[in-house]
Computed example of a mutant assay.
Amino acid sequence: MELSPRNLAIISYLKEHSEVQIEHLATLFEVTTQTIRRDVNLLCEQGLARRIHGGLSLPANLTNSSYQFRREIECDAKMAIAQAVARQIPVGSTVMMGIGTSMAYVAHFLAGFTELRVITNNLQVAKTLENSPNIEVYLSGGLVRCDHQDVVGQTTLKFFADFEADIGLVGCSSVTSNHTAMEHEPQEAEISKAIITNARQNWLLADASKWERFGSVKVANLSEFSRIFTNKTGLPNELPVSTVS
């Protein structure tokens, strides 16, 4: 189910304050407590919040949230980063594209390319590019994760290993204070590592919100990427950062 603007606003409030009471949300959004409880039920059902006495808080989970919710978060920043990435990809390139919502935004800007080969496990990337006559799309087999709109598993890792790409595009769930890109699940990190191994250049897409989150599985240090596309400011000069405003 698509989240309403109020649902997204509640999540934004939780990100800032960690927890909140039902009565306060009702006052904040000028609706009844019954209306807020329906919002709470929806967010909890989707694993985006958890109930506490008299209110709700952020979930204490290590798994990624639903694809639709992640697509909405920081969507303007992701769109700007995706456009900047697409502009830097040479026509005729072979590009690997990994998991995450940012890849779908990149695919949107690649759709008009006159020549391109895309190798991906991302279902939304394949769907976005399926009607582009000048783009070859290779989609991996494996375990389909409907909530995340991707394919994972050993079959997917072998699939990436059968190619050598000009550019590998990966995202991440978070970035640590010592500049390490992280993922929530081992199978997600394995996908990104497979792309890094099998591409001559590796580009990381990470909007500024990734520095505010936590992931438990290491992917790579930021220094290992050829380029980093982000709207995060204040990063060390030695990192290969392309700042997107």
Results as ranks from 00 to 15, higher is better:
109 F>C: 06
79 M>L: 11
11 I>F: 13
100 G>F: 05
184 H>R: 09
104 A>M: 14
43 L>G: 00
166 D>M: 05
58 L>K: 11
46 Q>G: 09
112 G>R: 08
228 I>E: 02
86 A>Y: 07
126 A>T: 03
91 V>W: 11
179 H>N: 13
73 I>H: 06
57 S>A: 15
55 G>R: 07
102 S>Q: 13
29 F>T: 01
1 M>I: 12
144 V>A: 12
163 F>N: 03
214 F>T: 12
229 F>R: 02
42 L>G: 04
18 S>N: 14
1 M>S: 15
243 T>R: 13
28 L>E: 10
238 E>W: 13
102 S>M: 15
234 G>V: 09
131 N>G: 05
34 Q>W: 07
158 K>W: 11
191 I>A: 00
9 A>V: 06
43 L>H: 01
26 A>T: 01
111 A>E: 08
236 P>G: 08
214 F>R: 14
90 P>A: 09
89 I>L: 12
213 R>A: 09
242 S>V: 15
90 P>Q: 11
37 R>F: 01
122 N>A: 07
59 P>I: 07
225 F>D: 00
65 S>Y: 13
156 T>E: 03
203 W>D: 02
222 L>W: 03
210 K>G: 04
208 A>C: 11
50 R>N: 12
103 M>R: 09
164 E>S: 14
225 F>I: 07
238 E>N: 15
159 F>A: 04
95 V>R: 04
80 A>I: 05
191 I>S: 00
134 N>A: 11
211 W>H: 04
183 E>V: 03
133 P>W: 06
5 P>C: 10
205 L>V: 10
192 S>I: 03
112 G>T: 08
71 R>L: 13
226 S>R: 05
146 C>L: 11
132 S>C: 12
238 E>D: 15
103 M>I: 12
61 N>H: 14
228 I>G: 01
46 Q>A: 10
60 A>M: 12
108 H>N: 10
1 M>K: 13
158 K>M: 14
3 L>K: 06
109 F>T: 05
144 V>E: 12
216 S>M: 13
125 V>K: 01
45 E>S: 14
195 I>L: 07
93 S>Y: 09
57 S>K: 03
140 S>C: 09
8 L>E: 08
87 R>S: 12
5 P>G: 10
142 G>V: 04
186 P>M: 04
20 V>C: 06
136 E>Y: 10
94 T>E: 10
97 M>G: 07
181 A>F: 02
59 P>R: 08
17 H>G: 06
87 R>F: 10
100 G>M: 09
82 A>E: 02
82 A>W: 03
32 T>Y: 02
223 S>T: 15
156 T>D: 03
37 R>Q: 14
220 A>R: 08
125 V>N: 00
228 I>Y: 02
61 N>R: 15
183 E>P: 00
118 V>C: 01
243 T>H: 15
175 V>D: 01
